[in-house]
Nucleic acid binder design. Structure first.
Lengths: 199, 199
DNA sequence: CCTACCGATCGGTAGG
DNA sequence: CCTACCGATCGGTAGG
């Protein structure tokens, strides 16, 4: 084990740090994700770990990016094969419920946790989180508008209103799963979605 | 200013600590609520503050209790004068939206924040939070059942399903207000509630 | 990537 | 209610 590694090794180490960082942050939050704890988990020194990022804030931003990649892989990518409009929207919601139900992150939905943690703060971390949720809401809005244009949803559908309601279903689902340990919650979520999107 | 105060003074100090503690915790969370920071805010020593509680966990539990009292005053108490059943349920939801909209706590809904923080942990703090939300859900379920019995809601209404949906509306509202700073969100929430409860 | 270290802050205690 | 202190941990740096 030489102290100097190749760029490939460094990239690998970085991705190991980020994968573990996402897991820890989903449970303990992005502040609870401490450099010392993460270093101990991975059997490396604090300064060795910090060398990959430079500061805790840069680490937090990289963790958010990594989690966004996981979400993209688990939800939008799984719906990518379906027709735009209502079929795509239904597939997105089904994958979203499944992502919640399967507990992809050990602390439940990563974004639900960090939104609650950072929604009252200022700075780049808050901005990154808000930006990602805004993009996701815009994707959903687009599919709703396509569905309306295609006559798959009523012409008077308020796309932003529907996104507001779908988001509420997912937040309620996450809380029911994590806090109440309610195994019936995914079925409840699917029932609302079927009603909102016309079964 | 003698160092020994009367029991009345001590009670007053305790309530000042808790009022400030609820404010801080709604923004920073119950872990971010540190004894040193709270003591500095109030111009007292850490040990003087801690003497009222004995440990941080006891302080956290007392803060949760205080927040529950504020919520009770802001929501169920405001609906207490209405007829049980659908009128009560509508009044409860209206007060709940208003509580979100007015930003009663500086960090938005206290419970939304601490649920996200503690839903993956174990221990008395988690249990206290889960217990309070369970009681609140039971209150809502009861009013729904009364409304169904009185013929004010359809006979096939699934009370727990409706609570799941109403909770989702409030969680989506809190996120829209805090993260997206969307001032149109309360109106969106009212629109869903009117539809769910038959305008 | 490491050791060794910095000042600041954490929850909590001793003793008054 | 205070001062004075404890060991542990925080984010981060120096130097290699």
């Amino acid at each position: 084990m030489s102290p100097r590694r190749s760029a490939t090794d460094a990239r690998h180490t970085r991705s190991v740090i980020l994968d573990r960082g996402v897991e820890v942050a989903s449970v303990e939050g992005l502040e609870g994700l401490t450099i010392g704890r993460l270093a101990t988990d991975l059997g490396m020194s604090k300064s060795g770990l910090l060398g990959h990022f430079g500061s805790k804030e840069v680490l937090q931003l990289a963790v958010i990016d990594t989690a966004a990649g996981v979400f993209a892989h688990e939800v939008p990518d799984r719906a990518a094969g379906t027709e735009p409009g209502l079929p795509r929207l239904r597939a997105l919601c089904a994958a979203w419920v499944s992502y919640m139900e399967r507990g992809v992150f050990p602390g439940g939905c990563f974004f639900t946790a960090v939104v609650a943690e950072f929604d009252d703060r200022e700075g780049p971390v808050r901005d990154a989180i808000a930006g990602l949720t805004a993009v996701w809401k815009r994707d959903l809005t687009l599919q709703i508008r396509l569905a309306v244009s295609a006559g798959e949803l009523p012409e008077d559908t308020d796309a932003e209103q529907l996104v507001f309601e779908l988001y509420g279903v997912m937040l309620s689902l996450n809380q029911a799963l994590r806090l109440d340990r309610d195994r019936a919650a995914p079925e409840r979520a699917r029932r609302v979605i079927d009603r909102l999107l016309g079964s």
